[in-house]
Write a protein that binds this DNA or RNA. Structure first.
Length: 565
RNA sequence: UGCCCGAUGGUGUAAUGGUAGCACAACUGGUUCUGGUUCAGUUUGUCUUGGUUCGAAUCCAGGUCGGGCAGCCA
């Protein structure tokens, strides 16, 4: 379900829709929007903003939102993307009205309207080459030159256009052009191409067509045919709006209104399909759903919740200002959601063995641990405890720095949900590295509370050795080292700003047993460490545990330590 | 040196002629069986110059800065 944004401020788009309702132009339930992706790539978080706006606004008014594949270029599009897009939209939590629609379903109508445009003297068949058209379009500061075919008769254009469709001419030999104004300061108005010849199989219409409509001609008609009332798109289409309106104006059709908003930019992220594609092709990431990718399938695999993404988009707001949003805001939405909803478990990422010398050998007891302290009503589980456990290497220091609250020789800490523990001896390997701790526990502190009221400064997590599940854990970090990956030295590009440490593979982590049983895509908190998600593809319940780090917990100790160095 | 669009703390935004507010980030401190969460608090802002007005972030004019546009891509 979409977010409930009744309390959200009214942005300029909603203000326009409100006004159209107030003035009586539309009734609330008549509001129609659409999300119109081209099926030539995967959806990313930038699309999520558009999706939330398109679907969200329609839902708020009781209107409808359609999902429409803008498949007017058979050379780039593929059925594979259609399915991926549908899945991503559904995953984000939205349901489109009716079946998925396709621009290609309207090819015949578009063709008929194009014939009408020729009859109205508003379009003509041009026989110049692509290069000639480019040359004669002029420049940003110079006007264009009219095509020698611009003033040919309506009859001739009609005949030629029909024969273009029949397949009489090769690719690139002719185009249908709108007759607008070669002197327009807006270059898109300098007789834009409406149809090009493409002898090419289309993923839906097969070889039925060999002329395909261009975006500007097609898109407004698609909106019009579907009865779209408000057609939302990003800012780069702003300059196309006069064309959008010019094409619809002379035709006896419904006139939607195009409204542009700024696209989403995120720090430490690239968003263009081209740039993402290169990351995939050059093997910098492992596919489109690599958890470091800003694609929806990547975020999903990383462990992001649809709710947190919707919440994020709502908090973003909608404006026409091109800025860059800090990725911390997204992460905050995620943590807020997961803090409430993710069950807690214990996991030791970098194991250090601890032997509890005063604990009976071969004894195992099962201690109770809350599943989620934020929601005690969710109950508890039993976790094993014995003489041998693992703790995280980072939770022990032979020489503790100032303000260090964890384990060190002679110090007492609490083992989460278990006992107080005191370190008495440290074993080293030949290289001098700490390899085992000899500790004692206080049997009176079972469950973690001291009957005598004494306090410990630190609580650390642990996993019992005998029942521990060995697991692979993937620690993901930001993909780029700087806020704007495109900021780089002369001659270099964003690839030079890739973070070499964006993935750390941990092969021998120790997890509490329950983590092996969870199904793929389970979102949990490893206590004191971060939020993790069992991998969609590689985690196999009861056989193989593979967890991805979604986002680390905030770490104020790391800040203190950094400050003191 | 064309046209279109934009400019409010570090970031994203609200205020539609009347007290510049919210969220994120940062920083202090309290609470805490997660150095998590939470709570209390602090720092930081209307691009600029004029004009209109009792009063301007808001309206007008000039400037500055930023984004977009010359595919038979979308």
């Amino acid at each position: 379900m979409p977010n409930n944004n009744e309390n959200a401020p009214v942005d300029f788009i909603r203000a326009i829709v409100n006004e159209d309702i107030r003035s009586g132009k539309y009734k609330p339930e008549e509001i129609r929007t659409r999300f119109p992706p081209e099926p030539n790539g995967y959806l990313h978080i930038g699309h999520a903003k558009a999706i939330c706006i398109d679907f969200g606004i329609a839902a708020e008014y009781g209107g409808k939102c359609y999902l429409r594949m803008d498949d007017t270029n058979p050379g780039k599009e593929d059925i594979e993307y259609v399915q991926a897009i549908e899945e991503d939209v559904r995953w984000l939590g939205f349901t489109w009205d009716g079946p998925t629609r396709y621009a290609s379903d309207y090819f015949q109508q578009m063709y008929d309207y194009a014939v009408d445009m020729i009859k109205l003297g508003l379009a003509y068949v041009d026989e110049q080459s692509a290069e000639e058209i480019r040359q004669s379009r002029g420049s940003l500061t110079e006007p264009g030159q009219p095509s020698p075919w611009r003033d040919r008769s309506i009859e001739e254009s009609l005949d030629l256009f029909e024969r273009m469709r029949q397949g009489e001419f090769p690719n690139g030999s002719k185009v249908l052009r709108a007759k607008i104004d070669m002197n327009s300061p807006n270059v898109h108005m300098r007789d834009p191409v409406m149809y090009r010849i493409l002898h090419m199989e289309h993923h839906r219409t097969g070889d039925q067509w060999c002329v395909y409509p261009m975006y500007d001609w097609a898109h407004g008609l698609e909106d019009s045919i579907e009865g779209i009332t408000h057609s939302f798109c990003t800012l780069e289409f702003e300059i196309h709006r006069p064309l959008y309106e010019w094409f619809l104006e002379p035709l006896p059709v419904h006139k939607p209104r195009q409204i542009e908003f700024s696209r989403l930019n995120l720090t430490y992220t690239v968003m263009s399909k081209r740039k993402l594609l290169r990351l995939v092709e050059e093997g910098k990431v492992n596919g489109w759903d690599d958890p470091r990718m800003p694609t929806l399938c990547g975020l999903r695999r990383r462990g992001y919740t649809p709710e947190s993404i919707r919440d994020f988009v709502q908090r973003l707001g909608i404006t026409k200002f091109t800025g860059i949003t800090e990725v911390e805001m997204l992460e905050n939405c995620l943590r807020e959601d997961l803090n409430i909803n993710a069950d807690r478990y214990m996991a030791v990422l970098d194991p250090l063995k601890v032997t509890i010398t005063n604990y009976p050998e071969r004894q195992v007891e099962w201690l109770e641990a809350l599943n989620n302290p934020e929601k005690p009503e969710l109950g508890s589980r039993k976790i094993p405890f014995s003489r041998e456990i693992y703790i995280d290497r980072d939770d022990f220091r032979e020489v503790p720095p100032r303000k260090y609250h964890r384990l060190s020789p002679g110090a007492e800490v609490r083992l989460r949900w278990a006992y107080f523990l005191t370190c008495h001896d440290v074993k080293h390997d030949e290289q001098g590295n700490v390899c085992e701790l000899l500790c004692t526990y206080d049997p009176e502190t079972r469950g973690g509370a001291a009957p005598d009221g004494r306090r410990v400064k630190g609580t650390i997590h642990w996993v019992e050795a005998g029942h521990a599940v060995s697991a692979e854990v993937r620690l993901y970090d930001r993909l780029f080292v700087c806020e704007n990956p495109d900021d780089c030295e002369e001659g270099l590009d964003y690839m030079s700003n890739l973070n070499p440490d964006s993935l750390t593979l941990l092969k021998d982590c120790k997890l509490e047993p329950a983590l092996l049983e969870l199904p793929p895509e389970s979102r949990v908190q490893f206590e004191r460490v971060g939020y993790f998600c069992s991998d969609r593809h590689d985690h196999i319940p009861d056989k193989k545990a593979v967890y991805n780090r979604t986002v680390a917990l905030r770490d104020s100790w790391a800040k203190i330590e950094k400050k003191h160095n």
